[in-house]
């Protein structure tokens, strides 16, 4: 069972791939440019890029031999929705609890 969102989340599970996505948020980059900050072998870099590509987070250009990588917005937007949902079930519940506690205590002092 590999739906798109799960592929996206699994791709993000690795810090190297997250760093690559952030680099691409600044503009397109070649495979060499993407791999430059890391002390990883060329095959390891290629593997990370393939995972990002398969998850639909980046695409490869057809231009010349460098085939520059670019960020693909669609999957990131879908991911954003999921993160929002996530924040709702965590932070928002804490907010609601906080509001309720202060209401309860306000009532207590009115008596």
């Amino acid at each position: 069972m590999t739906d798109q969102l799960s592929l996206t989340l699994a791709a993000l599970a690795d810090p190297t791939r997250r760093a690559m996505l952030l680099r691409l948020a600044a503009g397109t980059a070649t495979v060499n440019e993407l791999g430059a900050p890391f002390t990883l072998s060329q095959p390891a870099i290629s593997k990370h890029i393939k995972v990002l590509e398969r998850a639909g987070l980046i695409s490869r250009g057809r231009l010349a031999q460098t085939r520059p990588c670019r960020l693909e917005p669609g999957k990131l937007l879908e991911l954003n929705d999921f993160m929002d949902h996530f924040r709702v079930v965590t932070e928002q519940q804490m907010d609601q609890l906080e509001t309720y506690l202060s209401e309860l205590q306000a009532k207590g002092t009115e008596k």
Partner: peptide, 11 residues
């Protein structure tokens, strides 16, 4: 575990 780690890293 990978799904969880992706979400955790996102937050």
């Amino acid at each position: 575990e990978a799904t969880f780690e992706g979400a955790r890293a996102g937050m």
